Simulated scan of single mutants.
Amino acid sequence: MNDEEKKIIISRISEYRQNESGEFQRTPVSPLNRWLTYAMLIPVVVVMVFAGIFFFAAFLALVALAVVVVGIRFWWLRHKYEKAMQQSNNINRQSATDQTEFIEDAQIIEETEIHRDGQRK
């Protein structure tokens, strides 16, 4: 295969041809071929749009599900925390009421006053 045959094959594959001045020009495409190309691209574009809508909806559903799961988890932790705080407050109230009952039953045996100089009166 000589160099001239290689040039012809390469120029036909790339659809660019070199004119006498050395510039490359695109070979003209017939209007029928152009319209056939557009007619084939329309269904491809429609399928791609529907696939994009489907995957976007699936992604949006997964994000919504993740938000719900995280929200339920935070609610559950807050619920447990509030329940623990109520139990803690109940224990504190019971211990406070126990102390007040104990103090109410106590008797004052002796009253003393201590002044700053440290002497009792």
Score class of each variant (00 low, 15 high):
residue 2 N to G: 14
residue 6 K to S: 07
residue 10 I to S: 07
residue 10 I to G: 01
residue 13 I to D: 03
residue 15 E to K: 03
residue 15 E to L: 04
residue 16 Y to I: 11
residue 17 R to W: 01
residue 20 E to A: 15
residue 20 E to W: 08
residue 21 S to Q: 10
residue 23 E to N: 09
residue 27 T to D: 10
residue 32 L to Y: 03
residue 33 N to D: 08
residue 34 R to P: 00
residue 36 L to F: 05
residue 36 L to M: 11
residue 37 T to M: 04
residue 38 Y to F: 08
residue 39 A to C: 04
residue 40 M to W: 02
residue 40 M to N: 09
residue 41 L to H: 03
residue 42 I to H: 02
residue 43 P to H: 01
residue 44 V to F: 02
residue 44 V to H: 01
residue 46 V to R: 03
residue 47 V to A: 14
residue 48 M to Q: 07
residue 49 V to W: 07
residue 51 A to L: 07
residue 54 F to H: 11
residue 55 F to K: 06
residue 55 F to P: 00
residue 57 A to T: 05
residue 58 A to S: 10
residue 58 A to E: 04
residue 60 L to D: 12
residue 60 L to W: 11
residue 61 A to P: 00
residue 64 A to W: 03
residue 64 A to F: 05
residue 65 L to G: 11
residue 66 A to I: 01
residue 66 A to R: 05
residue 67 V to G: 02
residue 67 V to Q: 09
residue 70 V to T: 08
residue 73 R to Q: 09
residue 75 W to F: 13
residue 75 W to L: 10
residue 77 L to R: 13
residue 81 Y to R: 15
residue 81 Y to C: 09
residue 82 E to S: 11
residue 82 E to I: 09
residue 82 E to L: 15
residue 84 A to G: 11
residue 86 Q to K: 15
residue 92 N to H: 08
residue 93 R to W: 01
residue 94 Q to L: 05
residue 95 S to N: 10
residue 95 S to T: 08
residue 96 A to S: 13
residue 97 T to A: 10
residue 97 T to W: 05
residue 101 E to W: 05
residue 101 E to F: 13
residue 102 F to G: 13
residue 103 I to D: 11
residue 107 Q to L: 04
residue 107 Q to C: 02
residue 108 I to F: 02
residue 109 I to L: 12
residue 113 E to D: 13
residue 114 I to F: 14
residue 116 R to P: 10
residue 117 D to P: 09
residue 118 G to H: 11
residue 119 Q to T: 14
residue 119 Q to I: 07
